[in-house]
Simulated scan of single mutants.
Amino acid sequence: MTPARSALLLAGLMASAGLAHFAAPSQFDSIVPRSLPGSPRAWTRASGAAELVLAAGLAIPATRRASAHATALFFAGVFPANVKMAYDWRHRSTPERAVAYARLPLQVPLIVWARHAGKQHVRRGPAGADR
């Protein structure tokens, strides 16, 4: 898949996640680490807004590369919320625990995806010459 197409798919994922932060904020409030200052709802709104901004940046070719790098950093930055969720859900049903635990290693392919989305696509001609 080309980096441009990958970036647009990632933009869709980020926009969907960002909107979900506003449509159903309580599920996100519950995974905000308690060590962060302020209210969990403020962090939920801020992360939702960040996801929407990153989605827009990924969709625009001129800002795609910087937005892709910022998206990779965002995925690393929200990892503590996934750790909190896994810890908080350790006594839930097996399917719920599986969801919470699956989010932990999922951050790695998301970061790789964001890095791929930020690459410049070089088209090659029949003789391998750059176009």
Rank of each mutant, 00 (worst) to 15 (best):
residue 1 M to I: 02
residue 5 R to K: 04
residue 7 A to W: 02
residue 7 A to P: 03
residue 8 L to P: 00
residue 10 L to D: 01
residue 13 L to C: 12
residue 15 A to R: 07
residue 15 A to H: 04
residue 15 A to K: 03
residue 16 S to T: 15
residue 17 A to F: 03
residue 18 G to C: 02
residue 20 A to D: 04
residue 21 H to P: 08
residue 21 H to L: 13
residue 22 F to H: 09
residue 22 F to Q: 10
residue 22 F to R: 07
residue 25 P to M: 06
residue 26 S to I: 07
residue 27 Q to R: 15
residue 28 F to V: 01
residue 29 D to V: 10
residue 32 V to I: 15
residue 33 P to H: 06
residue 35 S to A: 15
residue 35 S to T: 14
residue 35 S to R: 14
residue 38 G to Q: 11
residue 40 P to C: 07
residue 41 R to F: 09
residue 42 A to E: 03
residue 43 W to R: 10
residue 43 W to D: 11
residue 44 T to V: 03
residue 44 T to P: 00
residue 44 T to N: 02
residue 45 R to D: 04
residue 46 A to H: 07
residue 47 S to P: 00
residue 47 S to W: 01
residue 47 S to N: 01
residue 47 S to H: 01
residue 50 A to I: 00
residue 50 A to E: 00
residue 52 L to V: 11
residue 52 L to F: 08
residue 53 V to Y: 00
residue 54 L to M: 13
residue 58 L to D: 00
residue 58 L to P: 10
residue 59 A to L: 11
residue 61 P to Y: 04
residue 61 P to E: 04
residue 61 P to L: 10
residue 61 P to S: 04
residue 63 T to L: 09
residue 64 R to M: 05
residue 65 R to G: 06
residue 67 S to D: 08
residue 68 A to E: 05
residue 69 H to Q: 12
residue 70 A to T: 06
residue 71 T to W: 00
residue 71 T to V: 10
residue 72 A to V: 10
residue 72 A to H: 03
residue 75 F to M: 13
residue 76 A to I: 13
residue 76 A to L: 15
residue 77 G to Q: 03
residue 78 V to L: 06
residue 82 N to Y: 03
residue 84 K to D: 01
residue 86 A to L: 02
residue 90 R to Y: 03
residue 92 R to F: 07
residue 95 P to E: 09
residue 97 R to G: 08
residue 97 R to T: 03
residue 98 A to P: 01
residue 98 A to E: 09
residue 100 A to V: 09
residue 101 Y to L: 14
residue 102 A to C: 08
residue 103 R to A: 08
residue 104 L to G: 02
residue 106 L to I: 05
residue 109 P to W: 06
residue 109 P to Q: 11
residue 110 L to G: 09
residue 110 L to C: 09
residue 110 L to H: 12
residue 113 W to E: 02
residue 114 A to G: 11
residue 117 A to F: 05
residue 120 Q to D: 06
residue 123 R to A: 14
residue 125 G to M: 08
residue 126 P to M: 11
residue 127 A to K: 12
residue 128 G to K: 08
residue 130 D to C: 04
